[in-house]
Amino acid sequence: MSATMNGKPLLETKGVSKSFGPVQALTKVDFDVYPGEVIALVGDNGAGKSTLIKGIAGIYGFDEGDVYFDGKKVSIHSPREAAALGIEVVYQDLALADNLDVVANMFLGREWTQGVPSTTGAQEATTGLRKYLRNLLPLTEIDMEKRAVRTLDELAVTTLRSVRLPVSSLSGGQRQSVAIAKAVLWNSKVVILDEPTAALGVAQTRQVLNLVRRLAEKNLGVVVISHNLHDIFKVADRITVLRLGHKVTTYIAKETTEQEVVHAITAGQLTRVPGMTQ
């Protein structure tokens, strides 16, 4: 799948490090995501996967190193800034409000209202008093529902009976699909999925993996964190292995084996091996 690697990376970290007090969670990690590819991020517990993702998502800053987005150096200080660039994270707990319906969840925090032109971006142009008044303007439910349905349709999420059902009534796979659809609703360019298939049944896992593949087909850069190598080999184009805060290597999925990746995860092979990209 090296074809997808032509062109420039969408997202790139160069030598990023992060420590929490005495604990060095991440040490000089280079990581890149190309458009139209699924890259898996694997490693044992404490390898630094979450730290890397949270840094990219703006939950906290890196201590050193640079982040480039679309070739430009950026500094991301909050999830909002990450979203404004087009980076969306789907966390393992999905962050859905069970009591709200599918549409309300997909638009949560960015609802369209009357009197203000609908924007697709995460950032809002309105400022000052109007920004506050907007919270009391009528929501444009019909526009939001149309958009939500269209997005679900583009992703071929077919199992929802209605987008007006509360999320509490959905299955695990449907919830994951809604969370992913929510992430791509905003013309995002990079979608990061944290353990998207954990706690899903066989059929639902398949559903979600197909969805992940479709994101890449739409030319998004997709990062998947997972412990399940079986799933990863089904969807990933490249596999980056982290161990104890260091990047071990990046494999091309087609040119490596599960054994090799397991070995890298547990033994941390830091020398050059066949299949390495750098």
């Binding site: 999830p79 707990d93 409000a97 009591n99 709200l100 925090g109 960015r110 929501l139």
Partner: peptide, 24 residues
């Protein structure tokens, strides 16, 4: 039921963490 403010009240009551991550 028809404004952002109300929607956010329901969202915070339903899942505070989800609301926070949504920028509310």
């Amino acid at each position: 039921e028809r404004t952002r403010f109300g929607r956010y009240v329901y969202a915070v009551g339903g899942n505070k963490e989800a609301a926070r991550r949504a920028g509310i």
